[in-house]
């Protein structure tokens, strides 16, 4: 099996990772909390190269919700990047953003979703949207490259304008297109 099939990531020709970076800049995001995913690799590189962004690598995704709250207390906007398995780690911590009314936008790359080969990714991938919505998070989903920018923009706007956790799920179909079916 090829490594690309183990960890699916968009090809260099795909514009959407750079479009997400541009949106983070437009919205004035200053703190980026993350647990890495191959699907976010290019976006993470762009953020790391940006001196106006503080990139905080987390030991578990739930730290990211706490980070977003601390950042907002101090007047900075943040975003949280993770893969769908990480959503299982943030469930209770979302209560912090809900109770305080903290903007907490989350961008999730999906696994266990479309053509998955790893059985361990499927339970959480299948439950990602339901779990987030059960915890009061507004979820939008993009499965086509041309939908990513406006979906992420909607997620950022909903979070920063209406003070709550929001999420965009980036479908595995987007990420795995290169090697899917081989």
């Amino acid at each position: 099996m090829q490594r690309e099939q183990l960890e699916s990531a968009p090809t260099a020709a795909e514009a959407w990772p750079d479009q997400i970076y541009d949106l983070l800049k437009q919205h004035g995001v200053r703190q980026v909390g993350l647990v890495p995913d191959a699907g976010h690799a290019r976006l993470i590189k762009r953020c790391l190269a940006d001196n106006d962004m503080k990139v905080v690598s987390l030991t578990t995704e739930e730290e990211g919700v706490a980070l977003a709250f601390g950042a907002w207390l101090g007047g900075e906007k943040s975003v949280l990047l993770m893969q769908s398995s990480g959503v299982g780690n943030i469930i209770n911590m979302l209560s912090v953003a809900i109770a305080h009314r903290t903007p907490c936008p989350i961008i999730v790359t999906m696994r266990g979703d479309f053509g998955e080969f790893n059985p361990f990714q499927v339970p959480m991938g299948n439950a990602t949207q339901a779990c987030l919505e059960a915890m009061g998070t507004l979820v939008k989903r993009a499965d086509r490259p041309e939908d990513v920018a406006e979906t992420v923009n909607a997620t950022l706007r909903l979070a920063f304008n209406t003070y709550r956790p929001t999420a965009t799920l980036l479908g595995q179909r987007l990420l795995g297109a290169k090697t899917f079916g081989k």
Partner: peptide, 24 residues
């Protein structure tokens, strides 16, 4: 900021705040 929840998150909340307000 007294916390009524978010058990396990206090230190990283402090981190986010400290990064946002480096003069405080």
């Amino acid at each position: 900021l007294p916390l009524w929840g978010g058990m396990g998150g206090a230190a990283v909340m402090g981190l986010g705040l400290a990064l946002a307000q480096p003069e405080r």
